[in-house]
Amino acid sequence: MSGPLSGFGVVLARDLRLAFRRPGEMANPLLFFILITAIFPLGLSPEPELLRAVAPGILWGAALLSSLLALDLLFGSDYEDGSLEQLVLSGHSLPVLVLAKTTAHWVVSALPLVVVAPLLASALYLPQEAWGTLMLGLLIGTPTLSLLGAMGAALTTGLGTGSALLSLLVLPLATPILIFGARGVDLAAQGMDPVGPLYLLAAILFLALSLLPLAIAAAVRISLD
């Protein structure tokens, strides 16, 4: 197999297979997502009016935090057993390979959130008209979160600093996604057209897809030095 995308499928399949072997770890971001969402009604009040108003922010905030959760696994174990170095030396284009790893990570940790989001939305009394926007927004917003997270993970791999530094690096960069994503859901819930924020999310995704794999690859090279 050759061409610029060679290696993408192999790495993607390998990472997915590895992830499915540890279903417990796979379920963590999803459980975390549900847990955070459940904490707010307990802390605020079960009043539908209030929950409906804050639901977009809660759901998107929970998605943002969940996306940080499994990031240390992204490069951590590969770094320790040396397979990350093998990837770098494999002769394939490293940005493509890290994109494959990030994609696998997104499929495992973010895609389930998209699927259960309507369930949680209904628990927060978000009107049904907004569910589609929520799912679509998460679908095009969480890949950017995964890419930003992968860059943070690559920069902190091997430092032994834990997830606090990772969150400090990633969360400020991820604020636009939170703003546009939550605003889209908010607009849809009020019966307005949410297409503007969704376009912005898509634009940011294309920017992230074209630039961040290069940055992630560079970060992996730096942390292997």
């Binding site: 860059m151 920069l155 690096l169 400020p172 960069l173 636009p176 920017l207 630039l211 961040l212 940055a215 560079a218 970060a219 730096i222 942390s223």
Partner: peptide, 13 residues
């Protein structure tokens, strides 16, 4: 190099 990369990504953001 690590912090420099972060700064460059940050300034685009």
């Amino acid at each position: 190099r690590a912090s420099g990369l972060l700064a460059v990504v940050g300034v685009v953001n």
